[in-house]
């Protein structure tokens, strides 16, 4: 699987994590190019459906990154995200997606290095797991 180039979609909140990723850029902290970022105003905006949609569209891994608990620009959007994503983690397993393919974490605007490390961690996780294979019914549904 030497030529496996994982596709990883990362949903980042506007106020902390996206800033953290921008800062990583400013400091030229390289990470794997297959990590592609979608900006949302708050991690609370991330509908579990978006995560499922990303897997269906061919993502091998999905990340949701928000402000640290207590620091959400909207007070507690990230807490809503946390609750939802815990449920989602259980759900994806039912669909044949390994739990490790999904990651929820907190990155502050200053934590550029944590962002880089988290991105690298996710990359190596997905490299270990190999490409996402959806089977049977789920595969047929996904193809539709």
């Amino acid at each position: 699987m030497a030529d496996f180039k994982p596709k990883i979609v990362a949903f980042l909140c506007n106020w902390c994590s996206y800033e953290g990723a921008d800062k990583a850029g400013g400091q030229k902290l390289n990470y794997y190019a297959g990590i592609k970022i979608i900006r949302v105003m708050c991690s609370g905006r991330v509908d579990p459906y978006f995560v499922l949609k990303a897997f269906r569209e061919g993502a091998d891994g999905v990340m949701v990154l928000g402000c640290h608990p207590g620091d959400c620009h909207y007070r507690k959007g990230n807490i809503s995200a946390l609750k939802r994503m815990r449920l989602l983690e259980k759900m994806i397993v039912q669909f044949g997606v390994e739990r490790e393919r999904f990651m929820l974490d907190w990155i502050s605007a200053g934590e550029s290095e944590k962002f880089q490390k988290t991105a690298e961690k996710m990359t190596s996780r997905i490299l270990n797991l190999g490409p996402l294979k959806l089977e049977g019914y789920v595969k047929r549904k996904a193809a539709q």
């Binding site: 979609v9 105003m41 905006r45 991330v46 949609k53």
Partner: peptide
């Protein structure tokens, strides 16, 4: 923040500039 939009089970809430359709298109 759009937290309600993600919570609505019937897809009735629209987060301006960050609608489901827009984010799906981005994905």
């Amino acid at each position: 923040c759009g937290t309600c939009t993600a919570a609505c089970p019937s897809g009735s809430i629209f987060a301006r500039h960050y609608t489901d359709n827009e984010i799906n298109a981005e994905i």
